[in-house]
Structures are given as structure tokens and as C-alpha cells.
Design a protein around this nucleic acid. Structure first.
Length: 243
DNA sequence: TATAATGTTTGAAC
DNA sequence: AGTTCAAACATTAT
């Protein structure tokens, strides 16, 4: 379920709970729920795939991982990891990783690497990419220290849009092309965001899980590439391998 | 029904 | 010491 754009949507859906007091908190995660009792939510933030619920001197980090879900003002059958009730309404998170972290998010997170942030800094991404050695672009795009919020769908679609083969060596890609890639990562992420809000994300997939290349109509290639052996869908014909 | 999928961390093995 | 790998965690659609 979650890549960066989906987490931003989550944040927006919960915006009305900002400033509201938690009347009761519980769940089957291992955090100390007593800490949350009677506290007002100070702020809601997202950083890439991290959703942050901020209080005075600490915050909760919710990571939906692969299968995480949530419900607003309703429940699922299963036990929530984290359930927060308010005078009016409730929020429930399932199958996710919850951490209670002391301090302020700004001490930990750099929003310049968050693809959905207003502070997103493409120059920084380009610079960081240049420091990589012996890295394939399919791994670099999923590196959350470079492109916080990029997931496997964004990776595949961006590489298709920019006509770069996923196994290209980052250092061999011309800087003009790198610039285009970084720009397109942000572009596609916002397309993702808009399509997701209209529940029509899949409709716009060009290469991800598609049988044929929409440009040259040849059969697309499916492989599990990179360090994480993540699903890669691409066109051998029009995506250039820089080696 | 078995499989694989929008993810990440951990610790063993090399 | 650095890397690579599998396992672990879970859920749902095909």
C-alpha cells in the first residue's frame, strides 16, 4: 500500500485530528500507550514513507511497511497495532511498525530528500548520486537516504519514462540524464499522488506489471534486480543500459 | 491453493 | 570489515 504519495494522502486525511486530545490509546504494538493518554496531537508530518504523530517532546513513527493499513472512524476485524480515540472519532493502524521516538523530528529527518516535500532538493539528490560507487540505478532510486518516499512502482515507472535500464551503473549515466531522472522522480510522484486520490493509479501504469511496452509494443521484461532483488519491469528495447 | 506483492531490519554467513 | 543473503514480520489479491 504505501509509497511516499500515499503517506502524504494519509496525513491529509487525518488533518482534522491535529490539536485534538487523545482520550484513549492502545493496541498490540510494544510502545508505552500510557504516554499518549490525554495528550493533544501537536502536529502530523510525513517524511517519505514515515508518518509522524508529534507531541511535545516525542513523536510516534508509523511505518506501513508492505501490508500496513489504517481506518479512520471505523475498525477492521483484526487487532490494531495502534488505536487512538478522541472525543469525536478514532484512528486505527494495522500491520505496521510503530516506534516512539524522543525529541523533535527535525533532529532526525532531512526534508530535502523527501520527494513529496516542499523542501525537496533535486540538486542534493544529483550530488548524492554522484558519490555512489558500483551502484545500479534501480537500487539508488529505492535508497531512502536519496529519494525518501520512492517505492517500487515509482522506481519502475520513472525508469520507463526516462528510458533508463534498471541495471544501469549510476556513474555511467550522463549528468544531463541524471538531472532528467531526478526531475521525473518528483513529477511521477505527484502524478502518483493525484491518480491515487482518484483511485485510478493502476490505470496509468505504463510498464509496472504490464505485458508489453506501450512505446514499441514488444514484450516487456520482468526480473528481480538489484541488491534487494525487487521486481523490475522494463523494456529491453527502449530503456538504455548505461554500463 | 500457492505465490508473490507498493518494505525494512536483523543477524548469520561468506 | 565489508558484502550478501535469508529470515522475519505481516495481509491480500490473483
Amino acid at each position: 500500500m504505501p509509497e511516499g504519495p500515499s503517506i502524504l494522502i494519509l496525513k491529509e486525511q487525518l488533518a482534522s485530528f491535529k490539536g485534538k486530545k487523545i482520550t484513549e490509546a492502545n493496541g498490540n504494538s510494544k510502545i508505552d500507550f500510557k504516554r499518549l493518554q490525554n495528550l493533544k496531537i501537536k502536529d502530523l508530518k510525513s517524511w517519505g514513507k514515515h508518518f509522524l504523530i508529534c507531541f511535545e517532546n516525542f513523536f510516534l513513527r508509523v511505518h506501513l511497511l508492505m501490508f500496513g493499513t489504517y481506518r479512520i472512524n471505523e475498525k477492521k476485524e483484526s487487532e490494531p497495532r495502534l488505536s487512538m480515540r478522541f472525543k469525536a472519532g478514532e484512528i486505527n493502524f494495522y500491520t505496521c511498525n510503530i516506534q516512539l521516538i524522543e525529541g523533535n523530528p527535525h533532529e532526525i529527518y532531512d526534508w530535502e530528500v523527501d520527494i513529496m516535500s516542499e523542501e525537496w532538493n533535486p540538486k542534493k539528490a544529483e550530488k548524492k548520486l554522484k558519490t555512489l560507487k558500483k551502484n545500479k540505478i534501480c537500487d539508488a532510486l529505492l535508497d531512502q537516504d536519496l529519494f525518501s518516499g520512492v517505492g517500487n512502482i515509482i522506481k519502475n515507472e520513472v525508469l520507463f519514462r526516462t528510458k533508463i535500464h534498471p541495471e544501469s551503473d549510476v556513474t555511467e549515466i550522463p549528468s544531463k540524464k541524471i538531472k532528467e531522472l531526478v526531475k521525473e522522480t518528483q513529477n511521477y510522484s505527484w502524478d502518483f499522488y493525484n491518480w491515487k486520490k482518484k483511485s485510478e493509479l493502476k490505470k496509468h501504469w505504463q510498464i509496472y506489471k504490464k505485458k508489453r511496452c506501450p512505446r514499441c509494443d514488444i514484450e516487456s521484461t520482468i526480473a528481480w534486480l538489484g541488491k534487494g532483488k525487487r521486481l523490475s519491469c522494463y523494456c529491453e528495447n527502449c530503456q538504455i543500459l548505461y554500463i
